[in-house]
């Protein structure tokens, strides 16, 4: 069976000539169906660039990306993407923004009412569903964007620093929710983060990316039982994984 997402020699160079910027790759990587893969790497190493290339929203300069055995040549519409900058529109309420994803896909908002309610509750935004984005804090906007990205229940998710702007406590709570969702439905997740702990807590595999031009330095397979709660996080094995990642970053001189 083919891996779900397969990267072969994928790289990205922005521009051409003397001003060209080698942003990413070449990288080979396989992501199997149902895996939770984190991309962990320093700022500017090309994580967002890779996300966009997998989503078919940015053309790779070289190499091949395949999803389910088919080469990606254009935008992939059956996945859920959470962009690094949120895609909330100012003229719609929180709920309206979540429904925008459904409406653009031609899905019925009435049929999804219950699942929107559920999503809103899971990120504690029920009381703010009639508010506009400018009435929300940065972290609340990010939670709304999270719901917007996932409301159509995609089997594959690309999440670009979805928890980046959240405070430590909310972040922990949403991490738990995301993990519960993954345990329940086993979507394939590609997850960008700067937090080593977060990556190891959530992922089946953590891909450590080098500084720009980003390459996969190592893929750490995290062999710990789910759900990875507080108990697991204080276990020596967990701490061992964190150390392992820290070593690599220290080697780059970014830690």
């Amino acid at each position: 069976m083919n891996p779900l997402i397969e990267l072969t020699g994928v790289q990205k160079v922005f521009g051409a000539g003397p001003g060209a910027l080698h942003a990413f790759g070449p990288v080979d990587m396989k992501i199997e169906k149902g895996e939770f893969v984190s991309l962990l790497g320093p700022s500017g190493c090309g994580k967002s660039t890779l996300m966009l290339m997998i989503a078919g929203l940015l053309d790779a300069t070289g190499g091949r990306i395949a999803i389910d055995g088919r080469t990606v040549v254009g935008p992939q519409t059956d996945i859920g993407i959470m962009f690094q900058d949120n895609t909330l529109v100012p003229w719609r309420t929180v709920r309206g923004n979540i429904e925008l994803q459904l409406e653009l896909r031609g899905l019925s908002t009435a049929a999804h009412r219950a699942s929107v309610d559920e999503l809103l509750a899971s990120v504690h935004l029920e009381d703010f569903q009639r508010r506009y984005p400018h009435e929300l804090s940065g972290g609340m906007q990010q939670r709304a964007a999270f719901c917007q990205a996932l409301v159509h229940q995609p089997a594959t998710m690309l999440l670009d620093e979805p928890l980046g702007k959240l405070d430590a406590m909310t972040r922990e709570a949403i991490r738990t929710d995301l993990q519960a969702l993954w345990i329940q439905r086993h979507p394939t997740v590609v997850f960008v983060t700067h937090s080593i702990e977060e990556a190891i807590q959530l992922s089946t595999h953590v891909a450590i990316i080098t500084p720009r031009p980003g390459r996969v330095e190592r893929i750490i397979s995290v062999d710990l039982p789910y759900p990875r709660d507080f108990e697991v996080k204080s276990s020596p094995q967990f701490i061992g994984y964190v150390r392992q990642a820290q070593e690599i970053f220290r080697g780059y001189g970014v830690l």
Binding site: L52, A55, L57, P75, Q76, T77, I79, I81, F83, D85, N86, T87, V89, Q101, L104, R105, G106
Partner: peptide, 13 residues
């Protein structure tokens, strides 16, 4: 904005 146009495209609308 680039993000919004990418978002729209990604929905296949």
């Amino acid at each position: 904005s680039e993000e919004l146009s990418r978002f729209s495209v990604s929905t296949g609308a």
